[in-house]
Simulated assay, not measured.
Amino acid sequence: MKIKKWKKFALTILNKIDNSILDIEVLLSNVLNKPRSWILCYEDYYLNIKEIKILNKLLIRRFYNEPLAYLIKKKEFWSLNFFVSNKTMIPRPDSEILVEQSLMKIQDNTYKILDLGTGCGNIAISIAYSKLNCYVTGIDLFPEVINIAQYNANTLNLKNINFFCSNWFTSILNQKYHIIVSNPPYLSYKEFLSLQKNLKFEPITALISKNNGFSDIIKIIKYAQNYLFNRGWLLIEHGWKQKNMIQKFFKRYHYINVQTYKDYNGRNRITSGQKYY
């Protein structure tokens, strides 16, 4: 079967999926290990039986709305490619604001930075890649997630980053950081149910938090004080409707210079505060 014939067949399967043509070309590119430009130029290339079998399996998974990133096992973030699996959340463009704001707070001297709930390591690695003079630590609860983050750091040959397992701060002993960043779970169970179609393939532990989505955020804001140097910064990603409550929590625990930043869609997404005493 030629590429153009399989594309036509695939389009009938994914006719209700947004951007289905792009998805089909990405799947072809991934399976054939060719750039999309090649796929477009060589539509008369004959797919062999093995290639068709792999493509059809991926096509069915995409039909059931499994994210493309999980099918091809990679996602671009901060102009870097990250290996992902269904053990980790898929990096999203809005989280680049967290990286951007963190980098703006780093001076020329060597900073120590902590990423809480690192997932595939996209935030920690993006900071480490951008600031080779800084030392970045990423923590996550699950060993298999830490292995993925470490793999992504090794792929980029980064020497200024390390990862280990910790339930938030529990395994971080006698350490202080200039910056702590986190994209923690912040959905309530009710919010998760309303978004379940889009999120059902992603790890639920990285999405839902108790206390109407605030439990983990409150814990981080409260205890980060013990792990920040004086004048150190805490930056947290959160739901776009949570701004007012997040700012209240920062101020309750005596952070100064509290400010919220918008994501690429103009929604309140990142709040930062500075330790002062």
Rank of each mutant, 00 (worst) to 15 (best):
M1H: 02
K5R: 12
W6N: 05
K7R: 15
K7E: 14
F9T: 08
T12E: 12
L14N: 00
N15S: 13
D18W: 03
N19M: 10
N19G: 09
N19K: 14
I21T: 14
S29V: 04
N30H: 15
V31T: 14
K34H: 10
S37A: 10
Y42C: 10
Y42D: 10
Y45W: 11
Y45K: 14
Y46T: 13
I52D: 02
I52E: 14
K53F: 12
N56G: 03
N56L: 12
L58D: 07
L58F: 10
L58W: 00
R62K: 15
L68K: 10
L68A: 11
I72M: 03
E76D: 09
L80K: 06
N86H: 09
T88W: 00
I90C: 05
R92L: 07
L98I: 09
V99M: 07
L103G: 09
L103M: 08
I106W: 01
Q107P: 01
N109C: 09
T110D: 11
I113F: 03
I113C: 03
L114W: 06
N122A: 15
I123G: 01
I123A: 06
A124Y: 00
A128H: 03
Y129D: 10
S130P: 05
K131E: 11
K131Q: 11
N133Y: 08
G138Q: 05
I139N: 07
I139K: 04
P143T: 07
E144I: 08
V145C: 06
V145N: 02
I146C: 06
N147W: 03
I148F: 07
I148W: 05
A149N: 05
N154C: 10
N154Y: 07
L156R: 05
F163K: 07
S166Q: 07
N167R: 02
N167G: 03
F169K: 05
S171H: 15
L173Y: 14
N174P: 01
K176E: 12
H178P: 05
I179L: 13
P185R: 03
P185C: 04
S188P: 01
S188M: 09
K190W: 06
E191H: 08
F192A: 06
L193V: 06
S194R: 13
L195I: 04
K197D: 13
K200T: 09
F201A: 06
K210L: 13
K210V: 06
N212H: 13
S215Y: 15
S215A: 15
I218A: 08
Q225G: 02
N226Q: 14
Y227F: 15
L228R: 05
F229H: 14
W233T: 08
L234S: 02
I236H: 00
Q247T: 12
Y253N: 10
Y253V: 10
N257T: 04
Y264W: 11
N265P: 01
G266Q: 11
R267V: 00
Q274L: 14
K275H: 08
Y276F: 15
Y276D: 12
Y277M: 11
Y277W: 15
